[in-house]
Design a protein around this nucleic acid. Sequence first.
DNA 1: GATGCTTCTGCGATCTGGTCGCAGAGCGCT
DNA 2: AGCGCTCTGCGACCAGATCGCAGAAGCATC
Lengths: 148, 148
Amino acid sequence: MAASDRLEGVLALLRANGGRVTSPRRAILQALMDHDGHPTAEELTADVQVHQPDVHESTVYRFLDELERLGVVDHVHLGHGPAVYHFADDTHHHLVCQQCGLVIEVPDHTLDMLHRRLRTEFSFEVEPRHFAVMGRCGTCAGRVAPAP
Amino acid sequence: MAASDRLEGVLALLRANGGRVTSPRRAILQALMDHDGHPTAEELTADVQVHQPDVHESTVYRFLDELERLGVVDHVHLGHGPAVYHFADDTHHHLVCQQCGLVIEVPDHTLDMLHRRLRTEFSFEVEPRHFAVMGRCGTCAGRVAPAP
DNA sequence: GATGCTTCTGCGATCTGGTCGCAGAGCGCT
DNA sequence: AGCGCTCTGCGACCAGATCGCAGAAGCATC
């Protein structure tokens, strides 16, 4: 199946870069693939510990760092609170509601205009992948009267 | 002079809301006005402690919170690291270079297009005031070859 | 399948940024 | 000056994340 291909592919890349394949690492990758959405390091740790209770949070952090160095995953800051992780080929931006925490995924090209404008006016290359775009979702924006 | 008018104005507002005027509070406000740029709570504490060494960091945090409740100041998260504070009437957005930390202030209307687009396409009300827009400044973007 | 070099891991300590509870100081109304 | 209530310094505490260490385990080689 495709999922296990992906896992083995990452492990091969890891080995090719002098890394070792261990059972905590397999479990962390598996948890990352099994999780739908945007897991935090803490959530991943919890998932892994269901089957391997001794895997330590710092191991998860260290391995996620390494996966990031290898370009396999990215981490994103969705406003306050812990960072969340996802596979790097899952390219999209995040709109986060500051009120209810809803995360809306929007395709890359949605922010193209902004890119162009800030590039021409300020020579600034926006990179909204690592930090979310904050605001309020339709429901929350409608529910609360805007401040005076 | 206008600066002391401003200080007294804030203190009057504070009193009008049942707050008290104390020498730590005067000093914190003064430090905020004297600082050009975007001070962190820690920097403000240090500035205050030059003249009043006993003022505690937690006092600074508490007073900044209160000033925020009164609508006098806002705090902004410029990517990683501590939040920075500025007067609320100083309305602009922040572009932050993830590489060198440069902060570019851009007028409110620069992001109007983005507002409109995200509102019509995703019913999302962008609120980019509380979190900076991250990316790379012209110098850093030019200096480093884009990743393959 | 044993050896040995190197990497990984669990663990606790540590760090940063920020918050909280408490007892006492001090503001400001009268 | 007296009094009620707010504010303050202080240390403890919290979350999220990182680090140093000694021991465990991968894997290339024999």
